[in-house]
């Protein structure tokens, strides 16, 4: 596993070495046109595959280079843990933005994961085939709907609902707990962002979890039911353990989607800088929103562009780490199930 991650980092060298190896192994001479075509076709195709491997590194290096000015001016801990964001005074603390991203993602996952997994269980184990036949295209369609549209829905439906119903009600019942109390009257809040994100990642998580559960062989369910287990017991003790790695991967997939999502969140989350969120009704300012909102003026203030590119770098690193882990887990399952 580790070697694969390392291999990505050293990919350009490796790919060159592999090309060299290819050359040396093909010692026999080409006489026909077909043979030449075959050889050059292979090389051309191979170079195309170098591209994605190299691209990962190139994006990383390019963003790192653009971030360097600010890394030279300030220490990494100062940037990551600093709480003040005043570009005009040269203060660039990422901490509130990182926390904003984490808060929104956490709320989204807490809402989405149980509902999505139960929905996937329903579709895969309980529902009639006609329900699945109806839902599959709808899920595919919704997975493809642009984030701006989810943002529009969030502004039209979620924000007013949070403002008028959820915030006052929860504030009344659970206001003594700081997690649910807030003086933000607008409805543009972490909860709104979380709800929109939860609904947005739901089609992806449901589809993947459903597919993974379908890969559990029918005979295995039958074996459990044949000794007199109920359907739920079969799901709990047989289907879920067998599908668990894939389900984890589905959730991590949703997680990385949620972390990187820009537009939908940006439109409903409030975007208030310099304030650490304490309650789900507080506004927040996640990293992607920070980048998207300020790109216009970033060239006019010293170090501002470097700071924003740094934000992009942080975002990329976090998401990539989650993604590599989930990809490796998924590959492991596929290998184990013998595909």
């Amino acid at each position: 596993m580790c070697s694969e991650v390392l291999a990505v980092a050293y990919s350009p060298f490796l790919s060159w070495a592999m090309l060299m190896k290819q050359k040396t192994t093909q010692k026999d001479v080409c006489y026909t046109m077909r043979c030449h075509k075959e050889r050059w076709g292979g090389r051309l195709f191979f170079f195309a595959t170098v591209m994605p491997v190299a691209l990962v590194l190139i994006i990383f290096v390019a963003l790192l280079l653009r971030t360097r000015p600010i890394l030279e001016a300030k220490s990494i801990s100062e940037l990551l843990l600093g709480q003040v964001w005043l570009p005009f005074q040269g203060e660039f603390g990422f901490f509130p933005f990182i926390m904003g991203t984490l808060w929104v993602t956490a709320v989204a996952l807490i809402l989405a994961v149980p509902l999505c997994l139960l929905s996937a269980i329903y579709l895969s184990e309980y529902s009639r085939p006609s329900t699945v036949a109806l839902m599959k295209p709808v899920l595919d369609l919704l997975a493809g709907i642009p984030s701006v549209v989810y943002g529009v829905w969030g502004m039209l439906a979620v924000v007013p609902a949070v403002q008028k119903f959820i915030a006052p009600l929860l504030g009344k019942w659970l206001g003594s707990i700081s997690l649910f109390s807030s003086d933000n009257p607008t409805g543009f809040s972490i909860l709104s962002g979380g709800i929109v994100l939860a609904v947005m990642v739901a089609p992806v998580i449901i589809s993947v979890a459903y597919e993974v559960m379908r890969t559990v062989p029918f005979g295995m369910r039958e074996a459990s039911l044949a000794v007199g287990a109920t359907q739920w017991q079969t799901i709990r003790y047989v289907v879920m353990p067998q599908a668990m790695p894939g389900i984890v991967a589905a959730v991590v997939l949703g997680l990385s989607r949620a972390m990187g999502e820009t537009m939908a969140v940006l439109m409903v989350v409030g975007n208030v800088a310099n304030k650490l969120p304490r309650s789900i009704f507080d506004p927040a300012y996640p990293l992607p929103a920070l980048i998207a909102n300020n790109y216009g003026e970033m060239m006019s203030i010293p170090l501002y562009d470097a700071a924003l590119m740094g934000a992009a770098l942080v975002l990329m690193l976090v998401v990539v780490i989650f993604n590599v882990i989930s990809a490796l887990i998924l590959r492991q399952i596929l290998r184990r199930s013998g595909q």
């Binding site: 062989p217 005979g219 295995m220 039958e222 074996a223 459990s224 039911l225 044949a226 000794v227 007199g228 287990a229 109920t230 003790y237 047989v238 353990p241 067998q242």
Partner: peptide, 19 residues
């Protein structure tokens, strides 16, 4: 479930449970 408990099944291909 009580009915199924009364009969044990040997399928065409064995399916050990994932445990």
């Amino acid at each position: 479930t009580a009915v199924r408990k009364k009969a044990g099944l040997l399928p065409q291909r064995p399916f050990p449970l994932p445990m």
